[in-house]
């Protein structure tokens, strides 16, 4: 079993805000991230797949094709967008990177051709903050 990672970049605006709470409560819990006029980040998405190298190509999966797939299914939907307002798979959800990485998994995983398995998504929000998700509960 070999693990292959493809890295893609995008940037987007978002805010952390629970509409069921008052503005004061949102500010208390989310601090500056609750700014009603949004803020933004340069995100890095690490997509790790796993599998055995194909005997004919030596590839688990063509890394260029993986890049194209991630671009089509994820990057085009989120790049230069407002995550709260513009991204269909984040509608009605709190736009934390935790929820965002789960949303990306749900969008991407069904689109990977068998027998490729998605192993891990790593989403980097700032130089000091990132999340990892391995699927499941």
């Amino acid at each position: 079993m070999v693990y292959l990672t493809r890295i893609e970049h995008f940037n987007a605006a978002h805010k952390l805000y629970n509409p069921n709470w008052s503005k004061e409560k949102n500010n208390e819990v989310f601090g500056k991230c609750a700014n009603e006029n949004w803020h933004g980040h340069n995100f890095e998405l690490y997509v790790t797949i796993k599998g055995d190298p194909n005997p004919d190509t030596g590839f688990i999966f063509d890394a260029k094709k993986l890049g194209a797939l991630v671009s089509e299914k994820i990057i085009e939907k989120v790049d230069h967008k407002n995550l709260n307002m513009d991204v269909d798979f984040m509608k009605g959800k709190l736009c934390s990177i935790e929820n965002f990485v789960i949303g990306i998994w749900q969008e991407l995983e069904p689109n990977l051709p068998p027998p490729i398995q998605l192993h891990c998504l790593k989403l980097v929000e700032t130089a000091k903050i990132y999340v990892e998700y391995y699927g499941g509960k």
């Binding site: 978002h14 980040h41 790049d79 967008k81 407002n82």
Partner: peptide, 8 residues
């Protein structure tokens, strides 16, 4: 794009 984007 009208709804803004962002950067670090």
């Amino acid at each position: 794009l009208p709804n803004y984007h962002g950067h670090n």
